[in-house]
């Protein structure tokens, strides 16, 4: 595998064990700017563990994670976010008591270091920026609706807009299409792919829906029992006998 010097995310020899069980062993891969990379594998293969080590929620036992050339192992998720990392979650996490616009404004306020203000009205700050982001993900017409009443697919779009608020160089998406209907999945991933390419963002996502993976990923990393067993463009991965045996089965 070649790791280009210019890769935004470079993971090398990452390892983590829980109570003697090796969840991730010596995993290495890279994601370049403008590229969508899918991480797939059976349940318990170590995808989530891997993911959480990249975003800082878990500390690896050994190995290195470099984002934009900066070593992030040992940094808190908050500090990693400051380096320009946007995240979306498998189960959407938004602020239910606020409107769509306010949700995005929160991310912008944080990005612009304005959270310490006790006097100004938050609703008046970064309105236009919030609207621009919402327009980009197709949510401008729902900006004033409370997040608590949105359809699930729309919440995913709000999350995406929030993840873009800090002008990220890296986007981490945990099962971005989980819980969505097939057509919505394709739509959301097409939107994501467009944004990733136009803004030259490196994107890493985990996914169970192979239709989504094979339709949109530029490269695929396959994990099994904590190890990377295959890595490459979709056709290579699809043709890989080991991948077919442990994960894909006969259908794909």
């Amino acid at each position: 595998m070649t790791i280009l010097r210019g890769s935004v995310l470079v993971v090398s020899a990452l390892a983590k064990s829980f109570g003697g069980v090796q969840a991730v062993r010596e995993a290495s891969f890279a994601v370049e700017a403008g590229q969508l990379v899918a991480m797939i594998g059976p349940n318990g293969a170590g995808k989530t563990t891997c993911f959480n080590m990249v975003n800082g929620q878990l500390r690896p036992d050994s190995g290195s994670v470099r984002i934009g050339g900066v070593e992030v192992v040992g940094r808190a998720p908050r500090q990693i976010w400051r380096l320009g990392v946007g995240r979306t979650f498998q189960i959407t996490a938004t602020f239910a008591s606020m409107t769509v616009r306010e949700n995005v404004q929160m991310a912008l306020l944080s990005y612009h270091h304005r959270l310490a203000s006790w006097w100004l009205r938050a609703a008046h700050l970064y309105r236009e920026e919030a609207h621009a982001l919402l327009a980009r993900v197709g949510m401008a017409d729902q900006a004033e609706r409370p997040c608590s009443v949105l359809a699930y697919g729309d919440l995913k779009r709000v999350e995406l807009a929030m993840a873009l608020a800090n002008a990220p160089q890296l986007l981490l998406m945990d099962e971005p299409t989980a819980g969505m209907a097939p057509a919505e999945r394709i739509e959301l991933m097409a939107l994501t792919a467009d944004i990733v390419r136009e803004r030259r963002i490196a994107a890493l996502f985990t996914e169970h829906d192979m239709d989504v993976v094979f339709a949109h990923a530029d490269r695929i990393v396959v994990l099994n029992r904590g190890s990377v067993i295959a890595e490459g463009v979709p056709d290579e991965v699809r043709a890989n006998a080991q991948v077919r045996q442990v994960y894909l089965g006969s259908r794909h």
Binding site: A178, Y247, L248, R251
Partner: peptide, 10 residues
């Protein structure tokens, strides 16, 4: 079948 690997779905 939600969230299961293709082999388990079968």
């Amino acid at each position: 079948s939600e969230g299961l690997a293709p082999v388990i779905v079968d």
